[in-house]
Design a protein around this nucleic acid. Sequence first.
DNA 1: CCTATACTGAACCACATGGTTCAGCATTAT
DNA 2: ATAATGCTGAACCATGTGGTTCAGTATAGG
Lengths: 121, 121
Amino acid sequence: MVQHYQGQFDSSFGALSDATRRGVLEQLAREDASITALAARFQMTLTGMKKHVGVLEQAGLVTTEKVGRVRTCKLGVRGLDEEAAWIERYRQLWSARFDGLDAVVEELKRKERKARSTNEK
Amino acid sequence: MVQHYQGQFDSSFGALSDATRRGVLEQLAREDASITALAARFQMTLTGMKKHVGVLEQAGLVTTEKVGRVRTCKLGVRGLDEEAAWIERYRQLWSARFDGLDAVVEELKRKERKARSTNEK
DNA sequence: CCTATACTGAACCACATGGTTCAGCATTAT
DNA sequence: ATAATGCTGAACCATGTGGTTCAGTATAGG
């Protein structure tokens, strides 16, 4: 078994990379649901849905509890705060990079205006 | 070939679900880099790194250009704005749910029903 | 007790992923 | 002209993914 340690972001972003799972999260944000209910809503087998829920559970985004024969799925305690923070930080770097290009363009324009006015003398 | 249509979020969150690729994005936010440079920095073969860059490129997060024998990788025009927005919306739903502010959930449901019915015609 | 319901687990499938090696090919440097 | 550099593509490998079916087990209801 190679069993690379799966980072938190690996599993949470991985969980989000599937439309069904994003749908399940949105659904659970509205109300708790059983595996059966989710399976019906997303048109797949119980077994298939259970796997998706398992992935979300692994990522800490969902918790489940079985009472009687029904397993109820709820949103997990963990939100997506750290993921949001990562993306936000990246977006800052990204825009700095692009604004940086703009700054260079501005700089070139400035120089050109200066050069032109110098030549015009 | 089944070739399911890959949604934008599927590929962008998928791209983010790997530590190496997140690292490459952070690196490129600092400066453009060749495949060789990235491969060296993340200790893997050229071929391996090229695949990662390919995934990022598919997701629209990176663009590359080959000049002579060097392929230079830069951040793509597309940032992570829509991904940030999705997460932000989810976080609102999540905290509403946890704060027990069911009224907020109801409000969002109402808005969405409205938006959906508007989109549907 | 009997049946329907809800889930669970194993096994299977096709295809994706994250890596590798090896054999090129084009470009640059000597 | 030769050699080194940088990338590329094909093939391979182990494991993961997103689904299925089928055969159970446990619980609820009549």
